[in-house]
Simulated assay, not measured.
Amino acid sequence: MTARLSLLFLALSLAPLAANAHPHVFIDAGLELSYANGDLRQVQVEWAYDAFYSLLIIEDLGLDPDGDGVLTSEEMRQLQGFDADWEPGFDGRLFLTAQGQPVAMGPGRDFTARYQDGQLISTHIRTLEEPLKGDIPLMIQVYDPEYYVQFSMPSAPVITGRALCRMERQTGDPAAAAKAYDAAVEAALADDGSAEAEMLAVDIGNVGADQVQITCEAEG
């Protein structure tokens, strides 16, 4: 595994390596919520990586050597699953909450990837461990608690298999996340005078995260 790919997996599933240098990766997340028989069953997740980080990964994989932005069929085959190496129990940076409780989901599956207009775009599916009744209000957030990756949801989720749903979107505040991160690092250093800022792992939770509230009317 190359150095930058190792950093990618650290960015997605482990604690950050360097303090006061966040975020390192920017990802626009797109979601598609799939309902069946009135219940939410799964969420398809799309991650669009920023152009600079996309280029680093493409280079580390040895793809697109002519730099024309077009991958051959063999290169596309090599690209598949480039970000699928999740640590056991990794939350996928997708958080669903219903009636104040987290909604349990299985690990990511059915990973696909493409290289489009200079960006790496990957998709995967998260299946709910138990179907969620569609008329229960749902809160969705996508964020990295360690703030190594800055996630955003530029578009509202797509809903399939369910009608009469309304969404309330709230855009997060990256400045608040950065401030919370700096405060957490400062507190950790104060607590442990021998700690080195570059090696600290801190958790800022969902500070500054985008969020969507979904409410669907009862069917039948």
Results as ranks from 00 to 15, higher is better:
T72N: 04
S152L: 08
A197W: 10
A178P: 08
E74K: 06
T97L: 07
A21L: 07
I27A: 01
R114D: 13
L164F: 15
F90A: 10
L33D: 03
L189Q: 04
G67V: 06
G172K: 08
D135G: 02
L56C: 12
Q119K: 14
L40A: 13
S54N: 02
L56D: 13
V25M: 05
Q150N: 06
L79P: 04
H124T: 01
R114P: 07
Y35C: 01
G38F: 15
R166D: 11
G92K: 08
A183D: 13
A176C: 09
L200I: 03
D50W: 06
E46I: 03
F82N: 01
Q99Y: 06
Q42T: 06
N20D: 09
K179F: 03
Y35L: 05
G81R: 12
A3T: 11
Y49H: 13
A84Q: 14
L128V: 12
D110L: 08
Y115S: 05
L7C: 13
P65W: 06
R114E: 11
I159E: 13
A36I: 06
N37F: 10
Q116M: 04
P23R: 12
D68I: 10
F90L: 03
F82M: 00
K179C: 10
A21P: 15
D39A: 11
F111Y: 14
V158R: 10
V212P: 03
R93D: 15
D66T: 10
W47R: 03
M199R: 09
G30I: 01
D85Y: 08
A218N: 15
P137S: 12
L79W: 07
S73C: 05
L79V: 09
E186I: 07
G172F: 01
A195H: 11
G92Q: 08
G38K: 05
K179V: 08
A21E: 13
A209N: 01
M1W: 08
S122I: 05
F52A: 11
A3R: 05
Q42R: 13
S13L: 04
L128C: 10
D110G: 04
L33T: 13
Y143T: 01
A29E: 00
I204W: 00
N37D: 09
A187W: 12
L40T: 15
E186N: 12
L17H: 02
R126C: 00
A98F: 03
F52S: 14
A36H: 13
Y181E: 10
R166W: 09
E198Q: 08
K133A: 13
C165V: 03
Q80Y: 14
G220Y: 10
L14C: 12
V212G: 09
E146Y: 03
G172L: 02
P88V: 04
G62Y: 06
N206W: 05
V142R: 00
G81C: 02
A156G: 10
M139F: 15
S34I: 04
Y53T: 07
G118L: 09
L132C: 07
P102M: 07
Y147W: 09
